[in-house]
């Protein structure tokens, strides 16, 4: 079976000090992969290069076997590659409802279809339903992350890239987010690449863990194996 997402020889950054150095990675359809590694290992750079926000010096990114190299950020999004960037990813000047409609815009044509799709998101993330006319900057950190995730899922992506969704959130909110993510992946066959500092919660929902160090993959193992291997954890993840 061909990979949903494949990365070949991806190099980003200046010669002599590359941030990513010929990185290769393949994620199977429906697979949830945790992308681990210390600060500065290249996790965010990898995700930005995948979505097209950062131009690589060399290498290719393939979505379902199709080369994305010549596509703009917005065209990659329309092909089914969704990214929830770290932190400030909610459009704070728009309301919750407007943020969701924006996410539904091009893949749910027609006002009625959009309303139905947005209503389903409110069912999935109940706290958002109570705040639909609040502006983005009035939301709590957890609500923002729910909004960003719900908005990304509205576009019915093929592959979802998440950058540190648990950053700064309470453990209860983190487990709720991870639960929704896991359930969505199971039900819809969504492929997920999840960059996380929170190794335990990432591995708890992932099928596989990939550890980045100095811009290359150094460990690629089943999530359960990684979670149970103290030597590995100590060497690359620092605990």
């Amino acid at each position: 079976m061909s990979a949903a997402l494949a990365v070949e020889g991806l190099t980003v950054g200046y010669a002599g000090a590359p941030v990513l150095d010929g990185l290769a990675l393949a994620v199977a359809p429906g697979e949830v992969v945790a992308l681990l590694g210390a600060n500065g290992a290249g996790k965010t750079t990898l995700l930005r290069a995948l979505s097209g926000l950062t131009a690589p010096r060399a290498g290719r990114v393939l979505l379902d076997g199709a080369d994305l190299s010549d596509l703009s950020v917005e065209d990659r999004a329309r092909r089914g590659l969704a990214q929830v960037p770290e932190g400030r990813s909610v459009v704070t000047e728009l309301t919750v409802d407007e943020n969701l409609h924006l996410g539904a815009l091009w893949c749910h044509p027609g006002r009625a279809a959009r309303r139905v799709a947005v209503a389903r998101t409110y069912d999935l993330f109940e706290p958002l339903a109570r705040r639909r006319s609040s502006l983005g900057h009035q939301l709590s950190g957890g609500e923002r992350q729910m909004l960003a995730l719900g908005r990304a899922l509205l576009a019915r992506p093929r592959v979802l890239l998440l950058d540190e969704p648990s950053l700064g959130l309470a453990p209860r909110v983190v487990s709720q987010l991870m639960g929704v993510l896991r359930a969505t992946a199971r039900e819809t066959g969504l492929t997920v690449l999840l960059a996380e500092q929170n190794v335990t919660s990432a591995l708890s929902i992932a099928d596989r863990g990939v550890v980045l160090s100095l811009g290359a993959v150094v460990v690629d193992a089943p999530a359960a194996e990684l979670a149970d291997d103290p030597a590995l954890r100590h060497a690359y993840l620092g605990f």
């Binding site: 917005e74 999004a77 960037p85 909610v90 459009v91 000047e93 924006l102 908005r151 576009a155």
Partner: peptide
């Protein structure tokens, strides 16, 4: 308001 996020959502 947020050009980069908008592009990630498919807005031209």
């Amino acid at each position: 308001a947020a050009p980069e996020v908008s592009r990630l959502l498919g807005v031209r």
